[in-house]
Design a protein around this nucleic acid. Sequence first.
DNA 1: CGTCAATATTGGCATCCATGGATATCAGCA
DNA 2: TGCTGATATCCATGGATGCCAATATTGACG
Lengths: 129, 129
Amino acid sequence: MPILTLMDMLEVLDCCSPLAREPLGEDQAAGLARAFKALGDPVRLRIVSIVASHQGGEACVCDLTASFELAQPTISHHLKVLKDVGLLTSERRASWVYYRVVPERLAELAALLAAPTRVDDGAAAEVDG
Amino acid sequence: MPILTLMDMLEVLDCCSPLAREPLGEDQAAGLARAFKALGDPVRLRIVSIVASHQGGEACVCDLTASFELAQPTISHHLKVLKDVGLLTSERRASWVYYRVVPERLAELAALLAAPTRVDDGAAAEVDG
DNA sequence: CGTCAATATTGGCATCCATGGATATCAGCA
DNA sequence: TGCTGATATCCATGGATGCCAATATTGACG
């Protein structure tokens, strides 16, 4: 069950954003950038939103094709992109394929961006007073 | 000062992710997608990270060009992209231009993705038992 | 004003990507 | 097996994007 407790949320957030703690390594940045890039398309962002807010946290492709004025292959393509970067999972039931979001993946991205409060904000900047 | 209290963080997080509350509107999604797209490049993601984690929360272009094996115009281009979507601000001091992150903008994105815990997760899904 | 250093802009090129038509695959059904 | 509906894959194309060389701009300093 993807229900997170307060403790979980705080642990994910930690004291400050990883972004502000130390520069991302190249490979680390590459992996995260792939996910952000997937969210960097209006259609895909809305797809994630529709899936996340849909009944039971899942939506079939037919729900999505009905929500856009785009051809079905285009929707299918976007779904594949989101799935490839780990933001969505899919499950086939009868003729329909149902998609749902991966909360852990979203939380990972959220934690990276969350509240870049800096501990050393003005403290260690005594170089050229 | 960008220090956030626990209450602030909880308020930002709210009960559940906006993504899971209701589908994003087209224009809303368009604006957010622009920011995610800007973060969807490994170089730009590392730039944001370097700036955020740098002394005093700011870095000049020379710091960045030294961190990548890319030509200076390329770095300048990426900085412009990040600035155009509101993720960075710049300030000229003497010959140098210093960039810093916009915490509110990052928080906005983080809040959108944060913990998509669903209140109605299995409750209202009694359609086809 | 002339020069130099730091940064931004321009122009061009190679590549990537969103989109949709045609088609393939898969599941249910007769 | 054959048929139909739902979804995925293939292919082509127009537009966006990352990159860099050349150049312009800006500020410091003489």
